[in-house]
Simulated assay, not measured.
Amino acid sequence: MQRNVHTPDGRVLAVEEAGDPGGRPVLVHFGTPNSRHFYGPNAADAAARGLRLISYDRPGYGGSTPHPGRFVADCAADVRAICAELGIGRLGMWGISGGGPHLLACAALLPDLIAAASLASPAPASAKGLDWFDWHGAGKRR
């Protein structure tokens, strides 16, 4: 099911739901570039497990209004608006790849709403001691 959610600042967020409509809500932050659309097998698996999947186009993508000057942490207010519109008091949430930072912002700013899991999320490029080559077994650069 697809719908539009209006934010308190007048923007529109395009939201999609899949899985079990009466199931436990789980909001998904997909990677970047972002899309709210679920793959059919994921929706079927969620329905079989009693999960209500929810996702949205981040501002400026798909059917969502742009939000000039937006910070990643601003997604917490958007998620709160979605939860209010859908009548959700608590939910699980996961983010993958570029959705990971959005998930972590929500975990920090909406602890009353969520349990969180981040999958394959990028780290800040400026993180001290981060070695971008270490992840694939190449070890330290020479």
Rank of each mutant, 00 (worst) to 15 (best):
A43W: 12
D74S: 10
G99L: 11
H102Y: 14
V26F: 01
D57Y: 00
N34S: 12
L109N: 11
V5Q: 06
W94T: 11
A46H: 02
L130R: 00
H37W: 07
H37R: 12
E17Y: 03
P68E: 08
T65S: 11
A48G: 07
S126I: 05
L86C: 05
F38A: 04
M93R: 02
S121F: 00
A84Q: 15
D112L: 09
S64A: 05
G31A: 10
V15G: 02
F133I: 08
A84P: 14
G129Y: 04
V5D: 09
R52E: 02
A47P: 02
G98W: 04
Y39W: 15
A120T: 06
A116G: 03
A18I: 06
G87L: 14
V15K: 01
A115T: 14
Y39L: 12
D57R: 02
D112G: 13
G98R: 02
D74E: 14
S121E: 04
T7S: 05
L13V: 09
C83Y: 08
V72I: 13
L113F: 15
C106S: 04
S118G: 08
T7Y: 00
D78R: 10
A76I: 11
G100I: 05
G31R: 00
G50W: 02
L113D: 00
R3H: 03
G63V: 09
G92Q: 03
K128W: 07
G22E: 02
D20T: 00
P59N: 05
I96W: 01
A120V: 11
H67K: 14
G98P: 07
G98C: 15
D74T: 10
A76E: 04
I54F: 02
F71C: 15
Y61V: 06
E16Q: 07
I82E: 00
M1W: 13
N42W: 14
P8K: 14
A84W: 15
L103P: 01
E16H: 00
S121P: 01
P33Q: 05
P59M: 12
A46I: 06
L91T: 01
N4E: 10
K140W: 08
S121I: 05
A115E: 07
F71Y: 12
R142Y: 09
A84R: 15
L104Q: 08
L119P: 13
A76S: 06
